[in-house]
Simulated assay, not measured.
Amino acid sequence: MIRRTTEGLVRQDLWQGKVIVVLGPRQVGKTTLVRGLAASVHKDYLYLNGDLSSVQELLSSRSYENLAAVIGDRKLVVIDEAQRIDEIGLKLKILIDTQPETQLLVTGSSSLELSFGVNESLTGRKFQHFMYPLSFEEISNNQGQARALDGLELRLLYGSYPEIVNRAGSERRYLDLIVDSYLYKDLLYQETVRRVDLLKKILQALALQLGSEVSYNEVAKTVGADPATVEHYISLLEQAFVIFRLPSLSRNLRSEIKRGRKIYFWDNGVRNALIANFSPLHLRQDTGALRENFLVSERQKIKQYHQRYSNDYFWRTYTQQEVDYIEESDGLLHAFEFKWNPRKRASFPKSFREAYPDAVTQTISQDNFIPFLSGDRA
Rank of each mutant, 00 (worst) to 15 (best):
S135C: 01
L90K: 14
T123H: 03
I79M: 12
Q103V: 05
L95M: 09
L114E: 06
L92E: 02
K126G: 07
R84K: 13
H129Q: 12
Y132I: 08
R125T: 05
V77E: 05
K126T: 09
S111H: 00
I96N: 01
K93H: 06
S115P: 02
D80P: 00
E120N: 10
T102A: 05
E137R: 13
L114H: 02
F130E: 12
V78M: 12
Q128K: 15
L114D: 00
T98P: 00
G89P: 10
S121R: 10
V77N: 03
H129F: 15
T123K: 12
L134I: 04
G108C: 10
I79Q: 13
I88C: 04
F127T: 01
E87Q: 14
M131C: 01
M131T: 07
M131H: 07
R125A: 08
E120L: 13
K75A: 04
I79R: 10
E81H: 04
S110N: 13
E81S: 01
I88M: 14
L95Q: 00
L76K: 00
E120V: 12
K93Y: 11
L104T: 03
L122C: 02
E87H: 13
K126L: 07
L104G: 08
S109E: 11
I79A: 14
T123I: 10
Q99K: 15
S110T: 11
I79K: 09
F130I: 11
E101T: 14
N119A: 15
Q99F: 02
L105Y: 05
V78K: 06
T102V: 15
T107V: 13
L114A: 14
E101P: 04
I88P: 09
Y132M: 12
K93E: 07
F127I: 02
L114V: 01
L76T: 08
T98I: 07
K75D: 10
Q83A: 08
Q99H: 11
V118S: 15
K91D: 05
S109L: 09
G89Q: 13
I85T: 03
E81P: 02
E113G: 10
M131Y: 03
S111L: 05
G89Y: 09
T107C: 14
F130P: 00
N119R: 12
E137Q: 14
S121A: 15
V78C: 04
L76D: 00
L92S: 10
A82W: 04
K93V: 03
H129K: 14
F136N: 07
M131N: 04
K93F: 05
L95A: 04
S109R: 02
F136Q: 02
L134G: 02
D86C: 00
D97S: 04
L105N: 06
G89A: 11
S121D: 07
Q128T: 14
G89K: 15
Q83E: 11
R84S: 10
P100V: 12
S135D: 00
G124T: 01
T107K: 12
K91Y: 04
G124S: 05
F136Y: 15
